[in-house]
Structure formats: structure tokens, C-alpha cells
Amino acid sequence: MSDDADTVDPEAVRHVADLARVDLEADEVEAFTGQFADILEYFETLDEVPEVEREADLTNVMRPDEERDSLDREAALQNAPETEDGFFKGPNVS
């Protein structure tokens, strides 16, 4: 995972895992390094795809900006592992 797509090393796998906020065990890093090399090599064949004009036939969908019912606070919090005073409680940001 450097400029040379043929080289996927464990350091590169750890870097992407860090960006994606997924801790990996050492054996996962090892397994993924080999698998990612195979998969990315296969993705390389996208180079053969010509540039294609994309004519998306899209329309915006709008709704009136009006007040309406939503989940009440208790329902919104019911699945949270930790809450405090009616709020979600998360870890320290820094």
C-alpha cells in the first residue's frame, strides 16, 4: 500500500486500521497483509475500464421543513451502554 500497489506490508495494514479505528491483533495484521495484496492486485484490473460518460437522471426530493414527531429521549437512549442525565456518555475526547 505504497505507490507501488504490489507491496502491501504490515505497517500499511496497521495504518489503514488506525484510520478506520479498528484495533487489530498481530495475527490479524499478518493474515490481512497477504489477503489485501491478492485483493488489491485483482482491483488493479479496473485500470482497463474506459472513462465512461455518466448521465445520471436524478431529481432532488424535498419535504416541507415542518416540525414533526421523533423518538423520545428514553427510546433514543435505550441501547446505550452508558448514559448520564439523559445524555449518551462517551469516553474522553482527548
Binding site: 446505550a80 451502554p81 452508558e82 449518551f88 462517551g90 469516553p91 474522553n92 475526547v93 482527548s94
Partner: peptide, 17 residues
């Protein structure tokens, strides 16, 4: 935070996440 398993992981947001 909003759903998911409770953990006893220590550290800041990124580490816990």
C-alpha cells in the same frame, strides 16, 4: 456509545472506539 457492547477499555475516544 449509542449502541454496542459495553467495554472496560481505557483511554481516549479513539482508543476506546
Amino acid at each position: 456509545v449509542r449502541y454496542g457492547p459495553a467495554t472496560d477499555a481505557d483511554g481516549n475516544w479513539n482508543e476506546t472506539f
